[in-house]
Design a protein around this nucleic acid. Structure first.
Lengths: 229, 229
DNA sequence: TACGAAACGAGAGCACCGCTCTCGCCATGA
DNA sequence: TCATGGCGAGAGCGGTGCTCTCGTTTCGTA
């Protein structure tokens, strides 16, 4: 393997630097990222940025993918750190890790889970990384089932069209998971997203002051719903 | 009472017209609303808009309040149309009405439940209208309790700090509702928000095709969690 | 009924934005 | 060695939110 040329390495560093500055601006000013401001911070002229990213949207896409990967990594690591048999421990660890990451990176959370930018269509590269957190969650349920620590809900609780949809999703992501359990896992994922969004977007500010405890309690409720022992 | 002057009436109509055009633009182009484009549509010059709204943010705030009120009205009406004793019927009606409104008005849903605009702080006028849907949901639980059709979960399932927070929220919005039940109601509200957001923001597009049935099933799951008979 | 004040719309202008194009400079690979 | 291509600077285009000024029109009041 040949060492990357100096130019290629400098280019890669430049790309990383642009993304880093852009992330800083995102955290400070929110989603309306200004290419010109990023360029100014780097001592460049705005048109120079276009040597590295063909458009502002492409820069945002790069940041989005990075954010998905960062969250996915954090969540998977949290899950892996708990004994596989401790289903509730894993559930709580995943919930807490996702929330922690969101609180530490609110702008990036808003970037990937806020309202999508109007003309902006999520590129194909984002859908894979975006699935990592929910896959981890339903993975806990699958492990619980295979280890006999979790009972599958009756399959007939699912209406037919939902079952067929979930069959396809299940075979793609968590083969062997009964559809009714997958539905519960997705409910947990939906709840996790809702809890974090409410907190990050300040919708709990009037009333809920002990947000850690509140989050843990709601996590517990959902663990009950999905049937974790 | 004196009739409003012609000028006042024309002004009110002008405000409504601006908001209507702005809503159209919002639906077409997403959240980055252009004052100049709205003015053009009205055959005005952009500075004329400032006679009616002191800034673009104030226009957005007006649209946000209208959206909250519209959603609140729809949800309350849906709840009122079901027999008060039919707790599950009311639960489903509220969930369905909220989703229906969001699907019919996706841009306005994104406006009020998407990521908040960066420099934008929700004005005090919005917090009241924003509470209407969750208040309806927990109202169902309170009715179930007072009619003896719903059992309150044990109070000691709540950690102390959560209980005190919820006590304050409860006395403000739904006096007499046990805190543990309020927590479940808020879980339902969080889930409703998550379900709608996932659907509106296209996060279910890969896999879930029968969205009506999926939504109904998840609604049912949450009804089970809160303990509706 | 007449008049001063206030509301109104148009227009010019400011600073900013994303993006394109052109122009020199220089490292790179053949 | 030399042509190629990557690179940064700069000018410029059409767009944005917002401000200020200037006539005109309408209103409440004297």
């Amino acid at each position: 393997m040949t060492a990357p040329s100096i130019r290629a390495r400098v280019r890669a560093e430049m790309i990383d630097e642009i993304k880093a500055v852009a992330r800083r601006h995102l955290a400070a000013d929110g989603a309306n990222l200004s290419l010109r401001a990023v360029a100014r911070d780097l001592g460049m002229v705005s048109s120079a940025i276009y040597r590295y990213f063909p458009s502002r949207d492409e820069l945002l896409t790069a940041l989005i993918i990075d954010a998905y990967q960062a969250l996915g990594t954090v969540v998977e690591a949290a899950d892996a750190e708990v004994s596989p048999d401790d289903l509730r421990g894993r559930w709580h660890a995943v919930f807490r890790a996702a929330r922690r990451w969101a609180l530490d990176n609110p702008a990036e959370y808003a970037l990937i889970y806020g309202s999508p930018v109007p003309g902006y269509a999520a590129p194909q590269d984002t859908i894979g990384p975006a699935q990592r957190p929910p896959v981890v969650l339903v993975g806990i349920l699958r492990d619980g089932l295979t280890r006999g620590r979790l009972a599958a809900p009756p399959a007939d609780e699912l209406p037919e069209p939902v079952r067929t949809d979930l069959t396809a999703i299940g075979t793609a992501f968590v083969p062997g998971l009964p559809e009714a359990l997958l539905a519960r896992g997705m409910a947990g994922w939906t709840q996790l997203f809702g809890l974090i969004s409410f907190e990050i977007f300040g919708r709990l500010n009037n009333g809920v002051h002990h947000q850690d405890a509140y989050f843990d309690h709601q996590t517990r409720l959902m663990a009950d719903l999905v049937g974790l022992p």
